Computed example of a mutant assay.
Amino acid sequence: MASTSYSTSMIPPQRLYTYHVFLSFKGEDTRTGFTSHLYAALNRNGITTYIDDNNLRKGDLISYELLRAIEESVFAVIVLSPNYTSYTWCLDELCKILHCNNDLPQHIVTVFYDVDPSDVRHQKGTFQYAFRKYQHRFGEESENVKRWRHALTQVAAYSGWHTKNQ
Rank of each mutant, 00 (worst) to 15 (best):
S5M: 09
T8C: 07
Q14L: 15
L16D: 14
L16I: 07
T18Q: 14
Y19C: 10
V21H: 09
F22N: 00
K26I: 05
G27K: 02
E28I: 09
D29S: 10
G33S: 06
F34R: 03
L38A: 03
L42V: 05
D52A: 01
K58T: 12
D60W: 07
L66Q: 10
L67I: 05
A69C: 12
A69D: 02
I70F: 05
I70E: 06
I70R: 07
E71N: 08
V74C: 04
L80E: 07
Y84W: 06
T85A: 15
T88M: 04
C90T: 06
L94R: 07
C95M: 06
I97G: 00
I97M: 11
P105Y: 12
P105K: 11
I108N: 06
V111M: 02
Y113P: 07
Y113V: 13
Y113C: 11
Y113D: 08
D114Q: 14
P117W: 01
S118W: 08
H122M: 13
Q123D: 01
Q123C: 04
G125N: 12
Q128A: 10
F131L: 06
K133N: 15
Y134R: 03
Q135P: 04
H136P: 02
F138N: 05
G139M: 06
V145N: 12
V145F: 10
K146R: 11
K146D: 09
R147C: 01
W148T: 07
L152F: 12
T153V: 13
Q154C: 11
V155A: 03
V155R: 00
A156M: 10
A157S: 15
S159Q: 11
K164Y: 15
